[in-house]
C-alpha cells in the first residue's frame, strides 16, 4: 500500500478515536465550568476559570457515602468470588472424581442466564429473609452472578498447572488445604488479578440489583446514588458533571495502570463460544 493509502487509514482510525474519546473529554470540561459558561460558551472551550467548587459541592452533598459503599461492596464481592471460584475450579480441574464434568457443565450454564429472568424471585427471597435494603443482598448476588465468568477465565490456567507440583507437595506431607492455599493460589496470582479487575468493573458499574434491592440512601452505591444527585442538581450541569466524573474515575485510573490486564480479561471473558 502506498503512503496515501496509509494516510487515509490513519484518518479513519483517528475519526473513530475522536468519536470514542470526545464525549468523555467534554464531560471533564463541563464538570469544571459553571452554568453560564456551559450554556453560553463553545462546548470545545477550556474552562476560563476552573470551578473546583463543583466537586466540593457534590462531595459535601454526600456523594462520599455512595462512593464508600461502592468501594466496600465491590471489594468484598471480589474477594468472595475469587475464593469460591478458585476453590471450585481447583477440585474440578485437579481432583479425581466422577461428577466433575457435570458440575463444570452446571457452572457454565450459569453464563447464559439473563439476570432479568431471576430478578423477581430474588427480590421475594431476600424479602422473606429480611435482606431487602441490606447491602449483604448485593454482596451475595454479585458473588453468585460473577462466579461463572470468573471460573471460566480460571479454568484454562488451572488445567495447565503441572502435576509434579501437587505430587511434590503431597509427598512432603502437605495437606490438601495447604496445597491449595500455600501453593496453588500463589502461583495463580497473575490470572487471579485479571479476574479481580474484570470483577471490579462489573461490580462497580452494576445498577439493576442495587436499584431493586436497596431503598435507603445510606446503602446505595454510586450507580444508583448518582441518579439522586442528577435529580437534585437538575439544572446545575457542573455539579452533575462532577458527580459523573467521580463515579467513573476509579475505573479510569485502574485502566491507566492495568490496561493490559483489562484487555486480556475482556478478551478471555468474551470468546466463550
Amino acid at each position: 500500500m502506498g503512503r496515501i493509502g496509509y494516510f487515509l487509514l490513519y484518518i479513519c482510525l483517528s475519526i473513530v478515536a475522536v468519536f470514542q474519546i470526545f464525549p468523555i473529554v467534554w464531560l471533564f470540561l463541563f464538570s469544571l465550568k459553571d452554568n453560564r459558561e456551559i450554556f453560553a460558551g463553545s462546548p470545545f472551550a477550556l474552562p476560563s476559570e476552573i470551578q473546583w467548587q463543583n466537586y466540593v459541592n457534590v462531595w459535601q452533598g454526600g456523594i462520599g457515602n455512595y462512593f464508600f459503599n461502592s468501594v466496600w461492596i465491590t471489594g468484598v464481592s471480589i474477594a468472595l468470588t475469587l475464593l469460591f471460584a478458585s476453590m471450585a475450579v481447583f477440585v474440578i480441574t485437579r481432583m479425581t472424581w466422577k461428577l466433575n464434568k457435570f458440575f463444570l457443565g452446571l457452572f457454565m450454564v450459569g453464563l447464559m442466564i439473563p439476570i432479568h429472568s431471576s430478578l423477581i424471585p430474588l427480590f421475594s427471597m431476600f424479602l422473606s429473609v429480611n435482606l431487602i435494603d441490606n447491602p449483604w443482598s448485593i454482596v451475595l448476588t454479585y458473588t453468585a452472578y460473577n462466579l461463572p465468568i470468573t471460573m471460566m477465565i480460571l479454568l484454562g490456567f488451572f488445567y495447565t498447572i503441572p502435576r509434579e507440583i501437587e505430587e511434590a507437595a503431597i509427598i512432603d506431607g502437605a495437606s490438601l488445604h495447604r496445597l491449595f492455599f500455600g501453593i496453588i493460589l500463589p502461583i495463580s496470582t497473575p490470572i487471579l488479578s485479571t479476574t479481580a479487575i474484570i470483577n471490579m468493573i462489573y461490580n462497580w458499574n452494576e445498577f439493576v440489583f442495587v436499584n431493586t434491592f436497596i431503598s435507603s440512601d445510606r446503602y446505595k452505591t454510586l450507580t444508583v446514588g448518582i441518579q439522586n444527585f442528577v435529580g437534585q442538581y437538575m439544572t446545575d450541569w457542573g455539579a452533575i458533571g462532577a458527580t459523573l466524573v467521580i463515579s467513573v474515575l476509579p475505573i479510569l485510573i485502574a485502566f491507566l495502570f492495568f490496561s493490559n490486564k483489562i484487555v486480556d480479561g475482556i478478551s478471555s471473558s468474551a470468546v466463550k463460544g
Binding site: 473513530v16 478515536a17 470514542q20 474519546i21 464525549p23 468523555i24 467534554w26 464531560l27 463541563f30 468493573i201 462497580w204 458499574n205 452494576e206 445498577f207 454510586l222 450507580t223 444508583v224 448518582i226 441518579q227 442528577v230 450541569w237 452533575i240 458533571g241 459523573l244 463515579s247 467513573v248 475505573i251 479510569l252 485502566f255 490496561s259 483489562i262 484487555v263 475482556i266
Partner: peptide, 21 residues
C-alpha cells in the same frame, strides 16, 4: 485501548452523559 474506554464506564454514567449530549 482508546477505543475500549467507553466500555469501562457504567451504563448509568453513559446514559447521564448522553442525556446531556
Amino acid at each position: 485501548k482508546i477505543y475500549l474506554i467507553p466500555m469501562l464506564l457504567s451504563s448509568v454514567a453513559i446514559a447521564q452523559l448522553w442525556i446531556k449530549i
